[in-house]
Design a protein around this nucleic acid. Sequence first.
DNA 1: CTCTCCTATAATTTCGAAAATATTTGTAAT
DNA 2: ATTACAAATATTTTCGAAATTATAGGAGAG
Lengths: 231, 231
Amino acid sequence: MTIEQKKQTKAAKVLDSLRHDIISGHFQPGQKLQMEDLKSQYNVGYSPLREALSRLVSYGLVCMKEQCGFSVAPLSMEELHDLYMVRIHIEIQALELSIQNGDDDWEADVTATWFKYKKCLNQAINNHIDPSSWDKLQKEFRFTLIKACQSPWLLKIRDMLNDQALRYRFICLNSYYRNKKVLNEFIKENENLVSAVLSRNTKTAVKLTQISWESSVKLITDAMQKNVIAK
Amino acid sequence: MTIEQKKQTKAAKVLDSLRHDIISGHFQPGQKLQMEDLKSQYNVGYSPLREALSRLVSYGLVCMKEQCGFSVAPLSMEELHDLYMVRIHIEIQALELSIQNGDDDWEADVTATWFKYKKCLNQAINNHIDPSSWDKLQKEFRFTLIKACQSPWLLKIRDMLNDQALRYRFICLNSYYRNKKVLNEFIKENENLVSAVLSRNTKTAVKLTQISWESSVKLITDAMQKNVIAK
DNA sequence: CTCTCCTATAATTTCGAAAATATTTGTAAT
DNA sequence: ATTACAAATATTTTCGAAATTATAGGAGAG
């Protein structure tokens, strides 16, 4: 329990927990989310639960059918491709704007977060893996790259698509963690991306992002065909 | 009360009503949404209300501050421009894909919905204005244009941005209804758009959409500066 | 044996009172 | 007069029982 969680409402807390538990795969895609179960699992009443679930419906992580309750949004090959297609568009748009609008402070910020993230990645190569700090730093780094875009709507939509995509990425996270070759590739790719961004080379930055994400889709597709998580 | 609203849950009904009442400006931007008031206005208890409001928070039409309740999302010049920037991008992407993927049935659909919509617009010129059918037909027409894009995520995001934008459009709707010159322009623009779409001329269709929307932004900007709805 | 309809059970959804928190009002001290 | 503090009021948030609706199981007719 962190210090800052004092005055949060129960609805907000259970929203965070649910989102995390869905993204991380604690609940299976498509799984029914029964009120009674959730109530005892999260130790809350009906109201905050329904509130959280309702928000996740709009957010796209949860489905609901009237009078038949809630369920975890399913994953599928088709959706994976659709999701990444839109996501690449949004992310690239944000990146372009960010490179265009970012000031000196932003450049410093990019450098700093990449420095931290890189350090974590290098430790991962030597088997010192800390998944939670990996996630945090990756998230921070990727957000810093685009946060100077000055478009609240782009950022909001990106957030949504990002959370969706994280569910798919979880399928093949283990291959990331273990494979040193993949990790080294990954570090190099990001290194190139950062230089392109800092030198305001929009075209290169966009192309690198596109390539990197398309290979992500490939990795996930392979993992999905092996696993039986989604046909 | 329409026929098909029998087995809807109260939360769903109040969600629709709230969305409509916010978009149409029945509630002022930024206005506080008090539970007691809403409860008596919509004749429901706390649970379905909070559920609907929660979904509208994720959707972007409602804001909420913990322990301080809900309020209507505010409008502003900055957001207008941000919104339309993103919206144009998404809509164009969807339009391109739709032109690319649409089959013969889709072409027929486009022709049919435009025929109906045009008829309604022509009646509007002769002062036979029916705002509700105007809205319905406009919505149907614009959706038909892009529905062949085969991307659920694009459609979902478009829906969200569309509803947001409708709030701004409401500010200057009266000038649309009354001004015959604007209406004639409008019909002509759409006529051109439909021909471009049907002849699969993606470039022209995109350009026409862009121009038409940029002039929309201008109209709204002017109206906002006159009205005092948002500074 | 299969299908339909009815009953029993289980789940979702809703209500309104109770708890928790914010806001306002009033009082006293500086 | 102004600030600080405290009581009173108003509002939001939560709980769990009650109402509504779906689902499963079983009896009877064809």
